[in-house]
Design a protein around this nucleic acid. Structure first.
Lengths: 111, 111
DNA sequence: TTTATGCATGGTCAATTGGCCAAATAAGCA
DNA sequence: TGCTTATTTGGCCAATTGACCATGCATAAA
């Protein structure tokens, strides 16, 4: 086992990876990413389905953008977002099995 | 597109998924999970390679445990941790492609 | 049965986050 | 040009996070 480096290249990589996961680690942002998996959307389309201030939505998108999860493109008056690397959402089947494993445990406890 | 629900079952699922990603969204915790992918380890083994207070390490493990990412088992004086659902780490190849995509962009900007 | 080891927990504190509001900017339209 | 719409930005505030230290607790060893 190698030491978790406090600085340097290896450290930068693990920090970048963690940043991606962290960006997706918020219900609103994860939901956004899932919607974008079906194709690009403009901010106004996303906003239509999220009950939050427009500025809040914009900031969540900025977090995803900074993490490299999405890219934005201005077309006319609107800004369109899309997933930069679509596989980012494939993972969810595994994440869901974590949820299921937890649920099974609770069932066992009740039994 | 369906509305992001403020409560209810769908909301609970997306929150649970986000919680898993959030738990992995910290360099130290992600590193821990990657180490555990190679097999279970006791806290002392992990601690040996992380430059942080023992209590800090213990709390990070508690976060992973609460998110359902790892399970712990006490054997003798030590507590062993392992991944509950090993696929959780397979994802990293995709996360890394996000990083690479970002890096390529920077290269283009320099060119 | 005292002592030492391995780990978890509670307290504290600075830093970060996530939300809203108000204001700034950018692009098309009258 | 001035107006409106779409989005971002800055300011602010409450809540959460992550780090440390000190303490508590269980297990094994002496």
């Amino acid at each position: 086992m190698k030491k978790l480096p406090p600085t340097g290249k290896d450290r930068a990589l693990i920090e970048a990876k963690a940043a991606v996961l962290k960006a997706l680690g918020h219900p609103t942002r994860l939901w956004m990413a899932e919607q974008l998996a079906e194709g690009e959307k403009c901010v106004c389309e996303l906003a239509e389905f999220i009950d939050a201030d427009f500025s809040t939505i914009s900031k969540h998108l900025a977090v995803l953008r900074q993490a490299g999860v999405v890219v934005d493109e201005k077309r006319g008056k609107q800004v369109y977002y899309r997933l930069k690397v679509p596989c980012i959402i494939n993972y969810m089947s595994c994440v869901e099995s974590v949820i299921r494993a937890g649920a099974e445990e609770q069932v066992k406890m009740l039994a």
